[in-house]
Design a protein around this nucleic acid. Structure first.
Length: 638
RNA sequence: GCCGAUGUAGCUCAGCUGGUAGAGCAGCUGAUUCGUAAUCAGCAGGUCAGCGGUUCAAAUCCGCUCAUCGGCUCCA
């Protein structure tokens, strides 16, 4: 019998008889590793532990604790769930069931709708299956055989999946465990017994193949971890994250409300929410002016004819609100670009004027579908920190780089990590292929020049041009688009924008649409969750609260209040007839950064004693010293 | 828009198989004058989301509508 050489990750080598399974090989290399190994990479490709090694190879065990290993564990768990669903609900058809970032799901078509009690039943059945030590076994069959097999089982979705494989695919792989067979690429766990800590989380609707024209399936979400402790930690983390929900904190901290009577998706800012917004907006104005932008402002409604000319009427109408006055139709703006173009067109422009950067904190209305509204993160009226840059094609690259730089700076100031995506031409779009290519390569070129890591999002661009999106995450790690840079050759064309070049001829400028924070509302929503409502001092709507110990300290409290107000500190009085402990608790729950205690001692010394919200007591200090602390933090964005 | 769940006082929630609503916190009034996360007592708060139906009787059962929540699709 021939022998093979295996190279392990630590570069040690072992010699085994040909045909040894990976499992046996690992078992003899390091037996203790085997119990947490879900699969292995052979020469870089992930495969099952049951695979027999026939030639020399580099073998790397995949541990369940790694991201990849956890993915395999979860994927196998989704197969077990599919089995449990079909055992519990005969006639349920399976579709697809991948592992995802925080767990797994499987989509089913089933006559009966799954209730939360049904999830318990399914989970119970899964426990029975995972207790039995069924092996996951792989086999490959021809696609014809596979089609016949799944047809016979009545699994029409699997048949569709196989039929849609590229023509050069001749065989497909099947995995089975405990009599349940599924079409799958693998790899999978060696046995169901490795599945120890899982739970089903929720049922939701999901369209077959993510297309809303298709049938809606029932998706069951679940998650699975290597150990019960890890699962418990995860569930606890989810509970903690719910406490950071901006909608909850919005009420608790009295920042804003969403009110049925006003209308869904319409935000009403309360004094503290408006203060936070004001601070952000002032920061925006200052930073834009520093970067050579001009502030402008357009009207809320513009004649319908203008929206027809821009293409919005044909491509965006279902998201727009309309009104009619004096038999004249108006569209309420869903975007700010039209007025900016009219500003550009108000006189003849020279190449010497370019780039022109028009900035507007532009409030827009979009008729979002009811099911997508989500507090501040998805509203029907919101304000974008919008700008339109009109430049020559030569200036495109440096302008895009400058915007990317601005975004990076903003994210640093506000403390966010972000992900970058390049979105390309969608189906419902306007403009020539040549312009789209030019625009797309301009964006991609800038991304490469700035060495940003990015993903490509095919067909996800705006109807008038491709875009770079920057996404940040909320408390539950859901991604929200904030900054975006969109490159547009089409609107300048439609509005016949031009500039006179150095050659004395007319040329067409390029337009960049861009936002930095995105929508102020959405950004605030993510910001609230990011800080769990405990904003850094520079952003806190109330920076300090003055807490008197007894009634007789009120006059000194008033004096301090006035001094702080004069110095521009955002300060609040807590002079009520309550015990100090009560007032501290109140301020603490409002997450006020500083509580200034005023009692006999402070009165005698003409001082304040700041207590930080982390519980740290700074001791007695003069009001001036305290003002310096606040101003220092304002300056440094802390 | 689609699938599912939910909707009781300002907030968090009780209210079983139908017999016309209850707690804690918040609020108000009074007492207390107090030193780093809740002082005590009293009072007041509800068209049980809305509309319609079944019933002698509906917060409770049924239907429709609206809104919210979790997903899907879409999006800043």
């Amino acid at each position: 019998m021939s022998e093979i050489n295996i190279t392990w990750p630590d570069n040690s080598r072992g010699t085994f008889p040909g045909g040894t399974t990976i499992k046996d090989a690992i078992g003899s290399w390091k037996p203790d590793v085997l119990s947490s190994t879900v699969a292995a990479k052979v020469d870089g490709s992930p495969v099952d532990l049951g695979v027999r090694l026939e030639k020399d190879a580099v073998v790397e065990p995949i541990d369940v604790a790694t991201k990849e290993g956890l993915g395999i564990l979860r994927h196998s768990t989704s197969h077990v769930m599919a089995q449990a669903v079909q055992d519990t609900f005969p006639g349920a058809k399976v579709t697809i069931g991948p592992s995802i970032e925080e767990g797994f799901y499987y989509d089913f078509e089933c006559e009966t709708t799954f209730t939360p009690e049904d999830l318990q039943k399914i989970e119970k059945r899964m426990q029975e299956i995972t207790a039995t030590d069924s092996t996951f076994s792989r086999r490959e069959i021809s696609r014809e055989e596979a089609v016949a097999l799944f047809k016979e089982k009545g699994e029409s979705y699997k048949v569709e999946l196989i039929n849609d494989l590229p023509p050069d695919v001749e065989t497909v792989s099947l995995y089975s465990q405990g009599g349940y067979v599924d079409l799958c690429r693998g790899p999978h766990l060696p046995s169901t017994q490795m599945i120890k800590a899982f739970t089903l989380l929720k049922v939701a609707g999901a369209y077959w193949r993510g297309d809303e024209h298709n049938k809606m399936l029932q998706r069951i979400y679940g998650t699975c971890f290597a150990t019960q402790e890890a699962l418990d930690d995860y569930l606890r983390m989810i509970e903690e994250a719910k406490k950071r929900d901006h909608r909850r904190l919005g009420r608790e901290l009295d920042l804003f409300q969403l009110n049925d009577e006003a209308g869904p998706g319409l935000i009403i800012f309360h004094p503290k929410g408006m203060m936070l917004r004001y601070i952000i907006e002032e920061w925006e104005r200052k930073e834009h002016l520093k970067r050579g932008y001009d502030m402008v402002m357009g009207p809320q409604i513009l004649k319908v004819d203008l929206w027809k000319r821009s293409g919005h009427f044909d491509h965006y109408r279902e998201n727009m609100y309309f009104t009619e006055v004096d038999e004249q139709g108006y569209g309420i703006k869903p975007m700010n670009c039209l007025a900016h173009m009219l500003i550009y067109k108000s006189k003849i422009r020279s190449y010497r004027d370019l780039p022109l950067r028009y900035f507007e904190l532009g409030t827009v209305h979009r008729h979002e579908k009811t099911g997508v509204l989500h507090g501040l993160l998805r509203a029907r009226q919101f304000t974008q920190d919008d700008a339109h840059i009109l430049c020559t094609p030569d200036q495109l690259n440096s302008e895009i780089l400058a915007i990317a730089d601005f975004v990076a700076y903003a994210m640093k100031i506000f403390g966010f990590e972000y992900e970058v995506e390049l979105s390309t031409r969608p189906e419902n779009s306007i403009g020539s292929d040549a312009d789209w290519d030019l625009a797309t390569s301009a964006l991609e070129g800038a991304l490469k020049d700035s060495r940003m890591v990015y993903e490509i999002n095919e067909g996800d661009g705006a109807f008038y041009g491709p875009k770079i999106d920057f996404k940040i995450k909320d408390a539950l790690k859901r991604k929200w688009q904030c900054a975006t840079i969109q490159c547009d050759f089409t609107l300048p064309e439609r509005f016949d924008l031009s500039y006179i070049g150095s050659d004395g001829e007319k040329h067409r400028p390029v337009m960049l649409h861009r936002v930095i924070l995105g929508a102020i509302e959405r950004f605030m929503g993510v910001l609230i969750e990011h800080h769990a409502g405990a904003f850094p001092v520079w952003l806190s709507p109330v920076q300090a609260s003055i807490l008197t110990v007894t009634e007789k300290h009120i006059p000194h409290g008033e004096k301090v209040y006035q001094q702080l107000l004069d110095a521009g500190v955002r300060v609040e009085k807590s002079f009520s007839n309550e015990k100090l402990g009560y007032k501290i608790r109140e301020a603490q729950m409002q997450k006020t950064p500083y509580m200034l205690v005023i009692g006999d001692r402070e009165m005698a010394e003409d001082a304040v004693s700041p207590r930080q919200r982390d519980g740290n007591n700074l001791g007695s200090m003069s009001v001036t010293d305290f003002i310096n602390i606040i101003q220092e933090r304002n300056r440094n964005y802390q």
